[in-house]
Write a protein that binds this DNA or RNA. Structure first.
Length: 216
DNA sequence: CACAGGATCGTT
DNA sequence: ACGATCCTGTGT
């Protein structure tokens, strides 16, 4: 039987988003017997980060990004998917980390049911929409404190051996500099990550026409 | 008040 | 490659 690690204290979150993002790898999200070990994250900053929801200043939707670190910011993406973000920094500062992939460590049956899958393959939890679905999170979780027991919690897990960094996914609308910023972090070598893969685990490529070479 | 488009995913 | 699906942010 797996023991929950200890709750992560508020001070953990009081750093810049990329630092918190790296530290989140290996930590476990717990809710109602389900535990997911975080394997992929992305850092987002304040108004100075043109890829961030904070880029236009504080609004009704993104207000949780300005709250104290360790709280949740949920939003709806493409009208369909719910995204789990972990707020960073002091109150009044804007920053958050998007949880993009995880590895199941407890409550697998319930996760399989929510994801409508028969067995645990990487697609079970590879992608931010899938992570939120596996934890059955909705927008009402915005504002929840991860450092308080009950509801959704963040607890200690097993840190990665090595971390790989790359550019963030799905931010083509941002400035060239912010697009290039390497604020996506994954556990190197983990199969539990979304596409495109980082850190030396080539995802099986679907090739259209026999033995055509992939572009450089 | 209209409208464009998005920190995605599953299927074709 | 595409459609789903809804609400935010911006402009008039």
């Amino acid at each position: 039987m797996l023991q929950p690690g200890s709750l992560i204290p508020p001070a953990f979150y009081l750093r810049e988003p990329p630092e918190v993002a790296r530290a989140l790898l290996g930590c476990c999200l717990w809710r109602e017997g389900v535990a997911l070990r975080i394997t992929e994250v992305e850092a987002y900053g304040g108004p100075e980060d043109s890829a961030s929801h904070g880029r236009h200043g504080r609004t009704a939707r993104n207000a949780p990004m300005w709250t104290e670190g360790g709280r949740v910011y949920m939003y709806l993406c493409y009208g369909i998917h719910r995204m789990l973000n972990i707020v960073t920094g002091e109150p009044g500062r804007c920053g958050a980390v998007l949880v993009r992939a995880a590895e199941p460590v407890a409550g697998l049956e319930r996760v399989l049911g929510r994801r409508r899958m028969q067995e645990a393959r990487p697609a079970l939890l590879a992608g931010p929409g899938r992570v939120a679905q596996a934890l059955d999170l909705d927008l009402g979780f915005s504002g929840q404190a991860l450092f308080e027991a009950g509801g959704l919690e963040l607890r200690e897990g097993w840190p990665p051996m090595r971390i790989a960094a790359g550019p963030r996914v799905g931010v083509d609308f941002a400035s060239p500099a912010d697009r290039r910023r390497r604020w996506r972090f994954v556990e190197a070598g983990s199969p539990w990550q979304s596409a495109p893969s980082l850190g030396g685990v080539p995802r099986p490529r679907r090739v259209r026409n026999g033995d055509r070479r992939p572009p450089e």
